[in-house]
Amino acid sequence: MSENSATALDHRAVQQTSNSVLGMVLFVISEAMFFMGFFAVYFSAYASAKIWPPRAIAIPPIGLPTAGVLVLLGSVATMALASRAGRNRDRSMITWTAATLVLAIVFAVILLGSYRGLGFHTGTDIYGSLFWVLSMVALAHVIGGIVFFVLVLIQARAGELEVRHDPLQAASIYWNFVAIIGVVLYATFYLANVGAS
């Protein structure tokens, strides 16, 4: 057994990431499995339906959600800038995080706005059920992100992030995951319907 080299390897491998970043990666993996549960149902229902979205579903307008997704993508960009600034111990990190926070709030508002005038409800069909439950769950994740950013900002204001940037890194991983979910939901519930009906 080459015991010493194994030890050294282990240490090199883990030195790169902090506990909280690793924890966040694991958390995001479990979140991904959580959404997998819903998407598995979505695709089974899709596969067994003749008409999709079902006839009872009035296809929602795509305008507002498109704006929302653009805002979301913008927030990913600001998040990336904040993250880079954080790595370089740059104070602009606070500005970028705040910008991400604002964009996240805007996105949440747009998400809420896009429920208005929807031509179906939770019980119209499994499509309606999936739409409502998935988007509500996504909204909850956006709100989680908002809370997360506020906490990070508080830490940043206190100067704590000068010494360690892992909270920001963790927030970034989380927010990128939320953004992926947002884009996937946009694609399944809006983009996929373009051309239908």
């Binding site: 499995m33 549960g37 019980g123 069909d125 499994i126 439950v133």
Partner: peptide, 24 residues
């Protein structure tokens, strides 16, 4: 980490089915 969240998604569907009239 890999399996329990899937149950959580199912439980959420069950909860919605009972309380919010979904049709999963």
């Amino acid at each position: 980490v890999l399996a329990t969240p899937v149950l959580t998604s199912g439980l959420l569907m069950l909860l919605a089915e009972r309380s919010f009239g979904t049709t999963f």
